[in-house]
Write a protein that binds this DNA or RNA. Structure first.
Lengths: 198, 198
DNA sequence: ACACGGCTGGACTTGCGGGTCCATTTTTCC
DNA sequence: GGAAAAATGGACCCGCAAGTCCAGCCGTGT
């Protein structure tokens, strides 16, 4: 993107993005203040605008990209290798554990809500994330179908979409109500449904 | 709550809440400005603070209560009478139709996200809504079990939780990506799962 | 009718937070 | 070593929107 970045500059930029991401998780999208990011990262306002001339929105967009990649990376090594029921179960457990540990801090939850309306670019990042996520699940389903573990009648894309919806809703309800049953039930029902060919 | 309300006063108050609700749907939780509510409802700032002395947060809380009740009311007459597969299907279709029509405006989506963190009262409204919603679904499942349409091994509460998670995620993804497949798949898979006893 | 209390209008204050500017220091590169 | 470019510090500006205040209006009851 922006050329001419000193090693020191790149490091500072990275520090800003990471600090902003942490601040985002703690405070929420629209409660993040540039001042907080400055304090956490030990930078000044001129630095923020030096590396992100388009201001807050551009910074948050960079953070969104970072977090979106992280969401998928956090599901490895399971997500890319959903080739056995054990892998599915491991993936399920990892997901639950991770989001329970996160508590009410969802890195992208805020963006999903409605922040995307004023920031179409952020919306694009989110839809792209969901596309990749759904594709990974669908690939896993097809692997299992090839291994005759899931009936061929199952539409992989549809099943993946439904499962993904369950995850998102489960996480949403986890963050807002503090209860894990929604996420766990959604995952268990979804996986059990695959087994039975729903 | 507030006593000594003239008929005219009650009407104005109601007008404010309704107008604020509309504004909330259109602009989102934290993008709502008191000024917008004033313009839409033809009221002045002193009126807003007259009826809601605690300011914006109290107003939005009143709106949240109103909208939460509406969400359940909108699912009638199906939600209370999930006693046949036809009723389940009708409920499913109604839900999809309603949210698709709403487009990217979700009355409570914003609150679910993270607004609840700074407004615990709003959070309580949401958890209460989800409780009632889940209970209604569980009741429907038990009806079907009594009619031997759903295997008795199914845990009604868990299945309802999973289904609800799918709905929330489906709506969330509908509002953020514009695609209906998530909501539809989640509902179809959930209902199909009930049939098969997942 | 008249007085009291709720109702309404609108100007004003205040604080917060994003964005700008420029002077200074540090790095890079020839 | 020195000029040019990048990195940094921090003071300043500005608009927006929540919340305050008070003066005047209605309508309700005795």
């Amino acid at each position: 993107m922006t050329r001419s970045l000193t090693a020191k500059g790149a490091q500072t930029r990275r520090r800003i993005v990471l600090g902003a991401a942490a601040e985002l998780r703690e405070r929420g999208v629209d409660a993040v203040r540039l001042e907080d990011v400055m304090a956490r990262t030990g930078t000044s306002k001129s630095q923020l605008f030096h590396y992100f001339p388009d201001g807050k929105e551009a910074l948050l967009l960079a953070v969104a990209r970072q977090e979106a990649d992280q969401v998928l990376a956090d599901q490895e090594p399971y997500l890319s290798e959903l080739t056995s029921w054990a892998a599915w179960q491991g993936w399920r457990d990892l997901l639950v554990e991770r989001y329970v540990a996160q508590g009410d801090r969802c890195p992208l939850g805020g963006l999903l809500g409605e922040a995307g309306r004023r920031a179409p670019a952020a919306k694009a990042v989110l839809t792209d994330l969901m596309d990749r996520w759904q594709a990974a699940l669908a690939a896993g389903i097809r692997h299992m179908q090839a291994a005759h573990e899931i009936p061929p009648a199952v539409d992989a894309a549809c099943a993946a979409a439904g499962l993904l919806a369950g995850i998102q809703g489960g996480v949403l309800l986890l963050t807002s109500t503090g209860r894990t049953e929604f996420l766990e039930s959604a995952l268990d029902l979804g996986i059990e449904g695959l087994r039975r060919g729903a």
